[in-house]
Design a protein around this nucleic acid. Structure first.
Lengths: 338, 338
DNA sequence: TATTGTTGCGCAAACGATTGAGCAGTTGGG
DNA sequence: CCCAACTGCTCAATCGTTTGCGCAACAATA
């Protein structure tokens, strides 16, 4: 590969001149003629700045790390796309961190930051990490922004309006006339689960309703968790006529388990999920969902990380634009014996 | 961050000694006592080798790029996991390339390789790239291995046994007694589509059958493509009683469209897909599928890239272990009027 | 005409790591 | 007792960039 030296030799100038021209330094003070010779030479040699050389000298990589617990999750895709788009627009690259390593003591973070592979990172921790483990991860001074979670004392987070999402989903069932509405939620320690819970409860309270404690399961966000939730909820007496599922993957599992148990959706049971994704469109029946813009979160997270890197400013941001939006498909209907 | 110099100062030795000890050079020739002082100092300072410094000097990044056309695809996840596992075991890191840029003239590849961000790459091109565009991408001397495709003259590829996968899927329908078996395939220019086609045809020929030309659609691998394929195939006369779908995403779409059209699966129509994924388990009915190990392909691809980087050897490999395996679920049954 | 300012470049020192060469001091063989 | 070989380290060059400083040449001003 051609180096600055090669280009300089071909253009008959010094290395510094080439560097200044090609990285268009503001006060480069190079004549138009020289500039042209340099640009031509660079093009002819197909010059590309060496990443390592530049990073070493400038102590900047122009890379942000994105660490997610589970790339299987359909939502990850949206997040990643948003992150990539924002990064590219700002001249950064996204490095996807090894998800499985996001454990207490998490080596990924220490490595990515410590070895100088990234300038900062966006970190979605999910259910997997215990609050105690989180502390180790973020007490470094590094520019880290949490995605869909927050930590007391840590400044720098981007979250969705989970509260509102769950509220809208619950309201939808209420408006259809349901009076026994269950909630298949994530693990108690999950940050998002806590916030969605308040939305669910507020919607019920506003309608003057109150559900027995067993109407909320707090099992988790996976497909299997959804299956378990359905079995547990439909074993109750009286059975719920509608279920708000806090996660689309769990909803897919819950729906499948309902089919297997001979429960008809939406005739016997209405199901609405918080979060939308392409998988939700392709279940049977297609899932009614509250669309939460993960793409926007990806963008906001990267924007926040970059701002933190470049200016040092931090913030805790709730993405409310676009707002959570109900997408009515075919998994919800009025209760049969309304 | 602590540098080699810091560690050296603290241990009271030279930088070279520290470097040799910490990167355990084979003939480091350092006394046990000194070694211990160095290791202790490094630990106390929480030393981590600077990525840029190391990369600059050694002209190696220990990073392989993985470029895929569409990270939405459920199969990508498996591929990525395999790639990551293999890379980690061998001391490499995976950098996920921006998918959308994999177009003719593809800038990603030139950048990742040209700027020295990666030592080599695994490239899954998919349907999106025209054969002509491919040439530009791979005629560089860089260590590039193609995944699920190949290119005349280019040595270095890892593919699945697509032929066999389609063969097994078709045989399954034949064994159930189907005699009108359609094939929802990918685009004609797709490498995998061509190979799956031969499997489908061979199975039919072996059974002494031959289908009219219209029984094969060559639309593509997306969910929407699957929907279109179903409409087109079920408009034929006589209708097929079974469909082999070349891709699981397309199969999901095809299944959804069948529901919408009031076609019962498997009573009116059997559907079997090539490739399995978690989405296939969660459709209704759950999809019968031929499981193809994308995880293994990810591993093999990275292994191949690394071998190419380190030894210069190249190879064209077909992953046959584990072999394609039929997973019978509930989307296939004997034809009604057998 | 002397001074000052500006333009257009080149010099050389970093950044952090690797590595061949070199150099004392010790050991072993003859 | 001498030379060779080995041990245990250090020196210094190098990878490709960036960037503060310096230095001519020339123009503008006093």
């Amino acid at each position: 590969m051609a180096t600055l030296g090669d280009v300089a030799a071909r253009a008959g100038v010094s290395i510094s001149a080439v560097s200044r021209v090609l990285s268009d330094a503001p006060d480069s003070r190079v004549s138009a003629a020289t500039r042209e010779r340099i640009v031509d030479a660079a093009r002819e040699l197909n010059y590309r700045p060496n990443f390592a050389g530049r990073a070493l000298k400038s102590a900047r990589t122009q890379v942000v790390g994105l660490v997610v617990p589970d790339i299987t999750n359909a939502l990850f895709t949206e997040l990643m796309h948003g992150a990539e788009d924002e990064a590219t627009e700002r001249g950064y690259t996204v490095l996807l961190g090894r998800s499985d390593d996001v454990r207490p003591g998490g080596e990924v973070i220490a490595r990515l930051i410590g070895e100088g592979r990234v300038d900062g990172m966006a970190l979605q921790v999910g259910d997997a990490v215990q609050p105690a483990g989180l502390r180790d991860l973020i007490t470094t001074q590094a520019p880290i922004v949490l995605v869909n979670s927050s930590y007391p004392g840590h400044v720098g987070s981007v979250t969705l309006d989970d509260h509102r999402g769950a509220l809208i989903a619950t309201q939808h069932l209420l408006e259809l006339g349901h009076e026994r509405i269950a909630f298949a939620n994530g693990l108690p320690r999950s940050f998002t689960a806590k916030r969605r819970r308040t939305g669910y409860k507020l919607a019920l309270a506003t309608a003057g309703l109150r559900m027995p404690k067993e109407y909320e399961t707090r099992i988790g966000y996976t497909v299997d968790n959804g299956r378990t939730a359905l079995r547990r909820l439909m074993a109750l007496d009286p059975k719920p006529t509608g279920i708000v599922v806090a996660n689309v993957n769990a909803a897919v599992g819950l729906l499948g388990e309902a089919r297997r148990a001979g429960i008809r959706v939406p005739e016997d049971l209405s199901v609405v999920t918080v979060h939308d994704s392409w998988t939700a469109e392709n279940t049977w029946p297609p899932l009614t969902a509250v669309k939460m813009q993960f793409y926007t979160v990806g963008r906001a997270a990267v924007r926040s990380v970059i701002r933190r890197i470049e200016t040092g400013e931090t913030s805790d941001e709730v993405v409310t634009d676009p707002p959570p939006e109900l997408v009515v498909r075919e998994s919800t209907a009025p209760p049969r014996t309304a």
